[in-house]
Design a protein around this nucleic acid. Sequence first.
DNA 1: CATAAATGACCATTATAATGTTCAATATAG
DNA 2: CTATATTGAACATTATAATGGTCATTTATG
Lengths: 88, 88
Amino acid sequence: MFDTIEIKEVKQELGFLVKALRKQRGLSQIQLAKSLDVSRTTIQNLELGKNFTVDTIFKVLKEMDLLSQLNSEILQAKNHVINSKSMY
Amino acid sequence: MFDTIEIKEVKQELGFLVKALRKQRGLSQIQLAKSLDVSRTTIQNLELGKNFTVDTIFKVLKEMDLLSQLNSEILQAKNHVINSKSMY
DNA sequence: CATAAATGACCATTATAATGTTCAATATAG
DNA sequence: CTATATTGAACATTATAATGGTCATTTATG
C-alpha cells in the first residue's frame, strides 16, 4: 500500500540533491570532500546513489546548513508517534 | 551561525525515533531485524545512535511507511535549490 | 579550436559497519 | 515473588564503506 518506492531510488534522489547543493555553492567534489574531511570517492559514491553511512550524509547536510532542519523533522516525527495511539 | 547541532546528537535522535516507531508497532528488536533481513545488532546500533548506513535506516523507514515522505522532502529540497539563485 | 578542470569509472588497500554469539541487567508477564 | 522476554554490552569474524590512486571521458575556460 504505502511506500512502494524503492530504497535505491531514494538514494539516487539524495545523491542528486547533494550534487545540486554542491554546485549551487560552486564547489568541486574535491573541494567539498576536503572541507568535510572525506575522500572524493566518498562524495562521488554519495552523489551516484551508492550505499554510504549517515555520518557522510550528515556531514554534507551540516555543511549545507540543513542538519538542524532534519533534526527538527525527526523530533516532529517522534512527537507524532508519542501522541498517537497505537493501531497495532 | 546555522547548524551548531552535532551529528552525534542527530544520530541519537534518529535512534530514539526508530525505537518509538518500533514500540508503537509492538515489535521487539529481533522481530524488526528479521522483517528487515538485518541483524539485531544492527537495529541496536541504530537505536543507540552509533554509525550506520543509509540502507539500514531506509529499510526501517520503508517498513514504517515513511520512505515516500522522505523522498518527497528530498525532491522538495532539490527544487528549492534549483529555483533559487546562488549566493556563492 | 586547444587547454585545463572536473567527473565517472575502476582497483587494491584500509577502516569500519554488519553479523552472530554470549552474558548481565531490565523489563514484562504469570 | 518467579519465570520469561527483551535489551544493552562486549567480542571475534565477515562484509563492505572509505580511502587513495590512476585513467578516460566530459565539461568548462581561454
